[in-house]
């Protein structure tokens, strides 16, 4: 294959992130964003959460939950800016903002989750 494009790789991340966002984010927002703050359900204590978070599987889970959806956002937002606002000429700036944002978020998630004692 001649002229290779990196689009397949970005599309893979986008799709994986789309699946993770669809499966897991609604329940996270429903519980942490609405039900617990509104007092509809008893919020888990910090003690319980820190106990959970120390488990390697939870860390891997949270890393996936933060990283892949960010790449999903980067992909969709990039095309929304291209098509919705017709600013494809700012291509490079948009790519840096979107994928750069996703990379920074991923690095931040890795840093936070790695440094739990």
């Amino acid at each position: 294959m001649n002229k290779r494009s990196n689009e397949p790789f970005l599309w893979m991340l986008f799709s994986a992130g789309g699946v993770i966002s669809a499966l897991l984010l609604p329940i996270h927002i429903l519980l942490f964003g609405l039900a617990f703050p509104l007092g509809c359900l008893d919020a888990p204590s910090q003690e319980k959460l820190i106990h959970l978070i120390k488990h390697p599987i939870t860390r891997l889970y949270l890393f996936t939950l933060c990283s892949l959806p960010l790449f999903h956002w980067a992909h969709r937002f990039r095309f929304t800016l291209y098509d919705g606002l017709q600013i494809k000429h700012l291509n490079e700036l948009i790519n840096v903002f979107c994928y750069g944002g996703a990379v920074v978020g991923t690095a931040l998630a890795a840093y936070l989750l790695w440094n739990i004692r």
Binding site: L25, G33, C66, P69
Partner: peptide, 11 residues
């Protein structure tokens, strides 16, 4: 997707 990104930030 913007709201997806928003809740990742919250998380």
């Amino acid at each position: 997707s913007v709201f997806v990104a928003w809740f990742v930030v919250v998380t």
